[in-house]
Amino acid sequence: MIARELFILIAAFAAFASAVGAYLAAFHGSPSVKEVLSTAFAAVIGLYVGRYLQVRLPRG
């Protein structure tokens, strides 16, 4: 279970970082590592908040 969550965390971070890096490179020139990593980190936090709310909120 912990290994699955760790895999999801790493895969999501890598996916968001590559997508953000590609977007910034294509539309805004060369991105800085700080921009890419901070945006990917924020996206992963949002992903986990969404997963938490999905489990915790009552279904109706």
Rank of each mutant, 00 (worst) to 15 (best):
G29H: 03
G50L: 05
V36G: 03
H28N: 15
L47K: 04
H28V: 10
T39H: 09
L24I: 05
L24S: 02
R56K: 08
A14M: 14
A12P: 01
A12Y: 02
A11K: 11
A22Q: 09
L57R: 12
F27E: 13
R56W: 04
L57V: 11
G29C: 03
E35T: 11
R56I: 08
V33E: 11
Y23W: 14
A12C: 08
Y52T: 06
G29Y: 03
F41V: 11
R59G: 04
A42I: 10
A12T: 07
F7W: 15
F13D: 03
I10A: 15
V44G: 01
K34C: 05
S30E: 14
A15T: 15
V55N: 03
T39W: 12
A17Y: 02
F13A: 14
A42R: 11
S32V: 07
R56P: 00
A3H: 09
A3S: 12
K34Y: 10
A22W: 13
P58H: 01
F13C: 10
V36Y: 00
Y48R: 04
A14S: 15
S18I: 15
A40V: 01
F27R: 14
V49W: 04
Q54R: 10
L47D: 03
A42E: 11
P31Y: 01
R59F: 07
T39A: 13
I2Q: 12
E5G: 03
V44A: 05
R56S: 11
G46M: 03
S38Q: 12
A22D: 12
F16Q: 06
G29F: 04
V49A: 10
P31D: 02
I45N: 08
A42N: 13
S38E: 10
V33W: 10
Y23E: 07
I45Y: 08
A19H: 08
F27Q: 13
V36N: 00
L24E: 05
Q54E: 13
L57T: 09
Y23Q: 11
L9C: 11
V55A: 11
L53P: 02
L6K: 13
A40S: 05
A25I: 08
A43K: 07
V44S: 01
G50Y: 02
P58V: 01
R56L: 07
R59H: 07
L47N: 02
I45H: 02
A25S: 15
F16E: 06
L37I: 12
I8D: 05
Q54T: 08
L47H: 09
A43C: 10
A22I: 09
A26H: 13
S18P: 02
V55I: 08
I10R: 14
K34M: 07
L53K: 06
A26Y: 14
M1Q: 10
A12G: 03
Q54G: 05
P58Y: 01
A14H: 12
H28W: 14
Y23F: 15
F41C: 13
A26E: 10
I2K: 11
Y23N: 12
L57G: 02
V20C: 04
R59W: 06
S18E: 15
A26D: 13
A22M: 09
G50D: 02
S38T: 15
R4Q: 10
R4N: 09
V33D: 08
R4M: 07
A15R: 13
A14E: 14
Q54L: 12
Y52Q: 05
S30D: 10
V33G: 06
I2D: 11
A14F: 11
V55M: 03
R51V: 08
G21E: 00
P58R: 08
G60E: 10
S30I: 14
Y48K: 04
A15H: 12
